[in-house]
């Protein structure tokens, strides 16, 4: 898998003191949203009872206090390997992760419910 835009940063001793190993910055290839992720995989360390069904970029939930709580930032599209965020304008999950461009390209393969949903979304522009 290519981690196209997930660049890794040189680790920093100060950062490690915080007890959190940052792997690098996750950047969505569609909307540019970015955040440092600290785990890539299916069993995030801050959510022991959760198993992800895709290999995802995860960080400790930045909006929650305490040790628990995770935030899945995004994953790679199963078709084009693009790194996309979980936002509804960038990707959707339907047994696998699809980036929105790929969904549109293969729209006929998706059930009607999703086609409807995507059609509704189309006029909505990304908030940029």
């Amino acid at each position: 898998m290519t981690e196209a835009r997930a660049r890794t940063k040189n680790s920093d001793k100060n950062r490690q003191l915080e007890g959190r190993k940052k792997q690098g910055d996750f950047i969505c290839s569609l909307c540019d949203v970015s955040a440092p992720y600290d785990y890539l995989g299916t069993t995030p360390p801050y959510a022991k009872s959760i198993v992800l069904l895709e290999k995802a970029y995860v960080m400790k939930d930045p909006f929650a206090q305490g040790k628990e709580g995770h935030l899945v930032l995004g994953a790679t599209c199963c078709l084009c390997d693009r790194c996309v965020c979980l936002g509804q304008d960038c990707s959707l999950f339907y047994t696998k992760r699809f980036c929105l461009p790929c969904v549109l390209q293969n729209i006929q393969e998706f059930p009607a419910e999703i086609r409807e949903e995507v059609a509704k979304k189309k006029p909505l522009e990304k908030p940029r």
Binding site: L52, L53, V72, F93, T95, K96, N106, E113
Partner: peptide, 25 residues
Amino acid sequence: SPQQKTLGLPDKYDKRYRINFSIKT
């Protein structure tokens, strides 16, 4: 659909398929 299916997606829509994780209960 009449077209060929290449993505191997389930035929019948279920909102459960939309969730990308499961719990270990």
